[in-house]
């Protein structure tokens, strides 16, 4: 029982982390990124490559991959997203365009991963020693994953809610039309937000790869779960994403443990639907 709670929190922590990335991209840059999960998987493979090929620890991979994710996302934003942002007459048009383009991007990333690594399940063994927590044993890598998720998530919350820079980003999320009146460069905010999202996806990928197997075609499911967390938490709400992420991780772990591992996605969908019917704007969303 307790073991499942810990495992659920570990998984949920990772979900919360990546969902924060997605919610920042959607809330501030107004881009619904369907290739988000494939970015996570790409980071998983990159970590695996560094670990097995160069014997670098995932912590070091984090130091390399997070800035790389940030930089690559900036490039993607500049060449793919920015032209769409410029041509969109309204927010709805941008939403549709970004959904379509990132859907294409999903197939590109997935295709590259399939070509490089094949379609099999991949994993590596890092810090796989059991640790005793409150009477149950948990793998050390899971605890490290949880600690990393919490630390990075908390750091992001502090930045968003306690710094001037974070306030700028939140202002753009709340009032994209009026933010420029206060001297805020919304283009720059959108670009930064998209890049932070990409960096968080990479963080999530590194963390996830430490304790889960992954496959080149698994991105869709991660995007799906991250999206569900975003919706459940309320669009653009960071605290909402954290609570909903943890909730989803717990639900999944318990369904896998007590009902059947094959039904986790069905369970996730059921939670999603049930909550949508009761609270169409999410747990922390405004009417």
């Amino acid at each position: 029982m307790l073991e499942h709670v810990v495992n659920g929190l570990v998984l949920g922590g990772t979900y919360a982390l990546v969902a924060m990335g997605l919610t920042i991209q959607y809330g501030i840059a107004r881009i619904m990124n369907l290739s988000f999960g494939d970015t996570i998987i790409a980071a998983c493979f990159a970590t695996w490559l560094m670990f097995t090929g160069l014997a670098l620890s995932p912590i070091l991979a984090l130091v390399v991959l997070v800035p790389a994710g940030y930089a690559l996302s900036l490039v993607v934003y500049r060449f793919i997203m920015k032209p769409l942002v410029d041509r969109a007459p309204d927010e709805g048009a941008l939403e549709v365009d970004s959904i379509l383009v990132t859907f294409g991007l999903l197939f590109v990333i997935q295709g590259v991963l399939l070509t490089l690594f094949g379609g099999g399940y991949t994993s590596y063994s890092y810090l796989n020693s059991p640790v005793n927590v409150l009477g149950t044993t948990v793998a050390a890598n899971r605890l490290l994953a949880l600690a990393l998720s919490l630390a990075i998530g908390a750091a992001l919350v502090v930045v968003l809610f306690r710094t001037r820079w974070g306030m700028t980003l939140r202002a753009v999320a709340l009032a994209p039309q009026s933010a420029p009146l206060y001297g805020i460069d919304t283009n720059r905010a959108a670009r930064t937000a998209f890049a932070i999202g990409g960096a968080l996806a990479c963080t999530g990928g590194v963390v996830l790869s430490m304790f889960q197997t992954f496959t080149a075609t698994g991105g869709v499911v991660f995007t799906m779960k991250a999206l569900i967390v975003v919706i459940l938490g309320g669009k653009g709400s960071v605290p909402g994403a954290i609570v909903a992420g943890l909730l989803l991780g717990l639900v999944e772990t318990f369904v896998a443990a007590y009902i059947d591992p094959g039904l986790t996605l069905a369970a996730v969908y059921t939670v999603f639907l049930a909550l949508l019917l009761v609270r169409p704007n999410g747990l922390f969303g405004k009417a």
Binding site: F107, V108, G111, V112, T115
Partner: peptide, 20 residues
Amino acid sequence: PDHFSIILGLLFILIVFVMP
């Protein structure tokens, strides 16, 4: 056969760009 999905994706992005 090996690069089908990459080409498909790129083509798709191109179509969204050129002919919305």
